[in-house]
Amino acid sequence: MSLSTHNVCVGYHGKTIVNQVSLTIPEGKMIALLGPNGCGKSTLLKAMARILTPIKGEVHWCGKNLHQMPSKGLAKQLALLPQTQPIPEGIKVKDLIAYGRSPYTGFWGRLTKDDHTIIDKVMQETGVTALAEQLVSELSGGQRQRVWLAMTLAQDTPYLLLDEPTTYMDLNHQVELMHLLRQLNLSGKTIVTVLHDINQAARYCDHLIVMKQGQINTQGTPEAVLTKDMLRTVFDLNAQIHRDPIANTPMCIVEDK
């Protein structure tokens, strides 16, 4: 298991948000991080992606402290798609995606033929080939999200960490994205994604990790995790669990208050 946290506390401005979390990411699986707003799921993801340094505890990559490893080497191992992205002025879609190759390019950032092949491939996978010559700042929110995803995929890492990748996307692109992630997962990538749609998580992911107030509440397969009890204690919801008629995965239907 390559990625794990050991008694990790993470927070901002001295305030602890993630408290004493020890977690091992099961390799080769598609994992969803779930939980109510403010439970620390994004914060934990950022600590695993070395964007945030833990206040206490360690994040390990292959048994070593991730936050002390050379950043450029790690950029070939794990890639993060942040939740909110800046809107860069005057950068074309194809150029933005090409920056995803920068951990691999030499000092001057010159792209090789292989780099171009990978860029073309991820542009096709994310459906942004037609947007290649447009400016990122001129795209709609959903299109822009797909372009950033393409940049993250161009990093070509065995581990992908995504923070609410479906936000801003309309339904068909959400479905396409989840299918794409599934395909990438089947081709060998480990995917950890923060999702807010519990049913989407249960349908497409193998392993759910539920957080509450900065700690792991429960984790396991969708069948084991998605229960009435969990929804009541974590999300304060009364809900029924049914079977998804298409995928036969568990899904929750919320009852009236």
Partner: peptide
Amino acid sequence: MALSPTLNILQLGEENARNLGAS
């Protein structure tokens, strides 16, 4: 001039820059 490839990546925001391995 030597710094310019890194400045390019910084345009993508600090989170992305760090994620792409820039120090």
